[in-house]
């Protein structure tokens, strides 16, 4: 079986963390990733940029509607994901708008954090 582990955290907490605390947390994540790599459980994973970089996409009557911000309603539940490579947000939006469920649900597009 494959399982998707979704990570939730209050962004206000992340904003309050200083450089030292951040480094400690990254080290902890690093260690955890190595553990599950070694045990053969690791398939993939990424950190996301904060929700204020998100765009939410709905396609209604063939028209793509954009909302500046994260998915915020509670009517719909998370049903799947795609990790895509796109040259710009425009391309990402174009691809996301073709995801079939964008027609009656919505798709939140969020950039993945680049870790140097």
């Amino acid at each position: 079986m494959k399982y998707l582990c979704l990570i939730f955290e209050a962004e206000t907490l992340a904003e309050k963390r200083d450089e030292k605390a951040n480094q400690a947390l990254f080290a902890e994540y690093d260690e955890f990733t190595k553990e599950i790599e070694a045990s053969g459980n690791h398939i993939g994973g990424e950190a996301l940029l904060p929700t204020d970089t998100a765009t939410t996409i709905r396609v209604r009557n063939g028209e793509t509607l954009l909302t500046d911000g994260p998915f915020a309603e509670t009517k719909e539940q998370l049903g799947g994901y795609y990790l895509i490579e796109a040259a710009s947000l425009d391309e990402a939006i174009e691809i996301a708008s073709r995801i079939p469920s964008a027609k009656d649900g919505c798709v939140e597009v969020r950039p993945v954090m680049l870790i140097e």
Binding site: T53, A87, S88, L89, P111
Partner: peptide, 20 residues
């Protein structure tokens, strides 16, 4: 916030193509 969104998303510096 808006500038951060633009930077983080690499919002296209190119002009939109004719069809868009």
């Amino acid at each position: 916030r808006s500038k951060r969104k633009i930077n983080a998303n690499k919002i296209c510096l190119d002009l939109p193509s004719r069809d868009k």
